[in-house]
C-alpha cells in the first residue's frame, strides 16, 4: 500500500478507550477525552487553497480557529498549517475524503496529528475554566484577552499543547491537543487541576 490512510483505520483504533470517557465526578468542569475521534492536518504553501477547494472555511490569521458545523473545528496553526478536528465524532467520512484527496494536491503535506496527539474537550463555567488553566498554563486565557477562536500553542502542565476556545450550539468549550504519549499524564493533571472547582 503506497498510501496508508490513518484516519480510515478508525475501526482498528484501540477500543480499550471509552469513546465517552468523561470526568465530571469532582468538578463543575467537565473533561472529555476525544482522542479517538478523527482529525487530520495539512501543511505547505498549497494547504490553504486545498482546503478552500474542498469547501472548508479558513481562519484568516495564524493561531485562530473557527467552528464549521456540528463540532468540526478548523485550526490555523501557522501561515501554512491547518488542522481539521472532529469534536463530535460525526465527521469521519469528510476527514477521510480530505485525506485521500490531499494525495493528489501540490505543495500539501499531510500531518499525522491523528496519532501524534491526544485531544480533550473541556466544558463548564467560563471563569472557572480560565482559573483552572491559570494553574497549569502560563498564557492568559481570560475572557478579554483570549477571545473565542483564539489559539495558544504553549506548555500546559509542562507538556507541549495546543489550546483553543470554540463553541458549538452556543456552548463554549476549550479544546486541548497534546502529545499522545502524555495523554494519561495530562488527563490526570487536568483532572487534578479541575478538582478544586466543586
Amino acid at each position: 500500500m503506497d498510501f496508508y490512510n490513518l484516519s480510515s483505520a478508525k475501526s482498528s483504533r484501540s477500543s480499550l478507550l471509552s469513546l465517552n470517557k468523561v470526568d465530571r465526578s469532582h468538578s463543575k468542569l467537565e473533561v472529555q477525552d476525544c482522542t479517538v475521534y478523527s482529525r487530520v492536518g495539512f501543511r505547505g504553501v498549497g494547504a490553504e487553497a486545498f482546503l478552500e477547494s474542498n469547501g472548508l472555511p479558513i481562519p484568516k490569521l495564524p493561531n485562530q480557529s473557527l467552528s464549521y458545523k456540528n463540532g468540526l473545528i478548523i485550526l490555523r496553526l501557522s501561515k501554512s498549517e491547518f488542522w481539521v478536528v472532529d469534536t463530535a465524532n460525526k465527521h469521519h467520512a469528510l476527514i477521510e475524503a480530505l485525506e485521500l484527496s490531499s494525495k493528489e494536491a501540490i505543495n500539501v503535506y499531510r500531518l499525522y496529528c491523528q496519532h501524534s496527539h491526544g485531544c480533550f474537550l473541556i466544558t463548564g463555567d467560563a471563569d472557572l475554566t480560565v482559573k483552572m488553566f491559570s494553574k497549569v498554563c502560563s498564557v492568559d486565557l481570560s475572557q478579554g484577552v483570549f477571545a473565542l477562536g483564539s489559539i495558544a500553542q504553549t506548555s500546559v502542565a509542562r507538556t507541549n499543547a495546543i489550546v483553543t476556545k470554540q463553541s458549538m450550539d452556543g456552548v463554549v468549550f476549550t479544546l486541548l491537543l497534546a502529545d499522545v504519549a502524555s495523554t494519561q499524564y495530562l488527563w490526570e493533571a487536568i483532572e487534578d487541576a479541575a478538582s478544586e472547582f466543586v
Partner: peptide, 10 residues
Amino acid sequence: PLNGPRNISE
C-alpha cells in the same frame, strides 16, 4: 514571531 511572548522554556 508566530505566537507572541512566551517563557524561554518553550
